[in-house]
Amino acid sequence: MSEQELKVIEMISRMSIDRASQVFSKTIKAGSKIEIVRFQRVDISEISEEVSKEDKEATGAIVQLSGEAPTKLLFIVNLKDALKLTDLFLRREIGETKAFDIYVESTIQEIGNILASSIANVFAKGFNVEMSPEPPVVLSDYSSSIFNTVLMDEDYLTDNKILLVETKFFVVRTAFDCMLFLMPSVEATKVLLERSFANNFS
């Protein structure tokens, strides 16, 4: 992929993440911002090594966006903060949820679904790409084991590198340790580029 093409994919990703950011704020009824902190083709060995250094107990929703531009999304939250998110989602005072239970798991599942859908909506509307989310799979595990599970797909690798859109969340008055990773497949980047240029996006 050329530098110019990579720029186009980055712009599309930024638009979709901005939309996800608005939707996330509305979901938890709190001002928040999701910022892209890395947009890069990364080597699978290097990224998994990097992630394992920051290892923590986490819960993550893996969502497959199916259709013409297959893309994977991983929404991952430190276990303690997943409890806080559950309180916000259920419109309770933070601190009410004391332990990991089916409601926490379900909150992460639903936030993963809402974020993935909002991203698919941007791709579908803006670039005329058929795209919709599969039901999320929720895993509670080491963050790096969850991350590695997402990497295990040859359709997403070129020369053992994956295109990674890494984000961080900033929520007003509340510290949250959660991240969203977006990984377009090799096919997805091709289709998104074709549609972008077809729409005179350049």
Binding site: S52, D141, Y142, N148, T149, M152
Partner: peptide, 8 residues
């Protein structure tokens, strides 16, 4: 030497 595994 340290690593973290799922299905690997």
């Amino acid at each position: 030497l340290r690593t973290n595994l799922g299905s690997c």
